[in-house]
Computed example of a mutant assay.
Amino acid sequence: MAAGEGESEERVYTRARTPELPEDADISVLDPEVKQELRGLPKGLAEIVGRHLAAAGMLIDSEPELALEHARYARTKAARVAVVREAAGLAAYHAGEWAEALSELRTARRMSHGTGHVAVMADCERALGRPERAIELAREAQVALLSPDEAVELRIVAAGARRDMGQLDAAVVALQGDDLDEKRRDPWSARLFYAYADNLEAAGRTEEAVKWFLNAAQADDDNETDAAERAFDLSPQD
């Protein structure tokens, strides 16, 4: 790190405005492990940081930019707490601030000595136009330590990186595995089937793509994808 770089970063965060807390942003809604980490802070400070983390979590899907403001503010108050850096990274990711997200998640990973959100980090590398780094992250990840859903997300991102590089057949192969079974109904099956179908279409394997979009639609109990519409659009019309 260049001399003064860290100080400059701290000043940027210190100047961040204090976002107004929603009334229902309460520390009690945080996950137990987050609250446990915050116990290392003075009680009053832990309450402030916890409420801003709660606000970030509440707003991350509907108002990601505002969620990021809350996470950044929490970061100014507790930059040495891993879960705070993790929250800042995830909020930045949802707000499309890829470089900031990557920096925060790397820091959180170093502080916690865990696997971190490696799929999110890899996706940030893709968004920054560095698909080869995304693939390298996927290779380095200790897959045995990842949860099954995290491992699947990493495969999806790695396949996308292959596709970014024009390696369409390799992208398809990257998603293949024992869990790519149309009879499976794992929590991640719909996303996996959809990604597989999407990459099959990109590789020009339209008939297979239709089949897997239909499989994704059948596995998508929460209607989170447009798999059925994609299958219809690709099917021959009379």
Rank of each mutant, 00 (worst) to 15 (best):
E9R: 15
E10N: 10
Y13E: 06
T14L: 12
T18F: 00
T18H: 02
P22I: 12
D24V: 10
R39H: 09
G40R: 15
K43R: 15
L45E: 12
R51E: 14
G57W: 09
I60F: 10
D61I: 06
H70L: 01
H70I: 01
H70P: 01
Y73V: 03
R80P: 00
V81E: 03
A82P: 04
V83N: 03
R85D: 09
G89P: 11
G89E: 11
L90C: 10
A91S: 14
A92K: 13
H94M: 15
G96E: 06
A99G: 14
E104P: 02
R106S: 14
T107F: 12
G114C: 08
T115S: 15
T115D: 14
D123I: 05
C124D: 08
C124L: 05
P131R: 05
E136G: 01
E136C: 00
R139L: 08
R139W: 07
L146V: 03
S147G: 14
V152N: 04
I156D: 07
R163H: 11
L168H: 10
A171Y: 04
V173N: 00
G177H: 01
D178T: 06
D179F: 00
D179C: 00
E182G: 01
E182H: 01
E182W: 00
A190R: 07
L200P: 04
G204C: 08
T206S: 07
A209G: 07
A219S: 11
D220H: 05
D221E: 14
D221L: 08
N223I: 00
T225Y: 07
A228W: 04
D233R: 15
D238A: 13
